[in-house]
């Protein structure tokens, strides 16, 4: 049985910038444990001759020619930004949360 502690859930949530309440952590920890358990059961059937699979298609070396293609204008790029200044994305102070 895989186990995931409350502390681990809280840490992962923090890394992923997901704000979880204590109650949510209590609820999610056992649910995540069940998911991990399901994944563990795959390990039971995977034998040594089955390589771990990270990609759904068996392709390698899909490369692009090094040729410039048109992108966005600055106006287009910034159109969805909540705030801009001097043709740049304006973001809140960066180290404030530490």
């Amino acid at each position: 049985m895989s186990d995931i502690t409350r502390d681990e859930v809280a840490h992962l949530a923090d890394l992923a910038r997901i704000d979880l309440s204590e109650a949510e952590i209590d609820k999610l920890a056992p649910q995540l444990a069940v998911i991990l358990e399901a994944i563990d059961s795959i390990a039971d059937v995977a034998t040594d001759d089955i390589p771990p699979t990270s990609h759904a298609v068996p392709l390698t070396n899909v490369f692009r020619e090094d040729v410039v293609r048109p992108g966005l204008t600055a106006e287009q790029a910034l159109a969805g930004a909540p705030a801009t200044e001097d043709q740049r994305f304006l973001v809140p102070r960066i180290l404030g949360e530490d």
């Binding site: 692009r64 090094d66 040729v67 410039v68 293609r69 048109p70 992108g71 966005l72 204008t73 600055a74 790029a77 910034l78 001097d86 043709q87 740049r88 994305f89």
Partner: peptide, 27 residues
Amino acid sequence: NTATKMFCGCPAAFGGEPNTHVCPTCL
């Protein structure tokens, strides 16, 4: 010093007006 970026066709040239060497992929 490739002509384009690692994962998209935007120019990899130094400088340029801000946010003019961008596309949906690198954004």
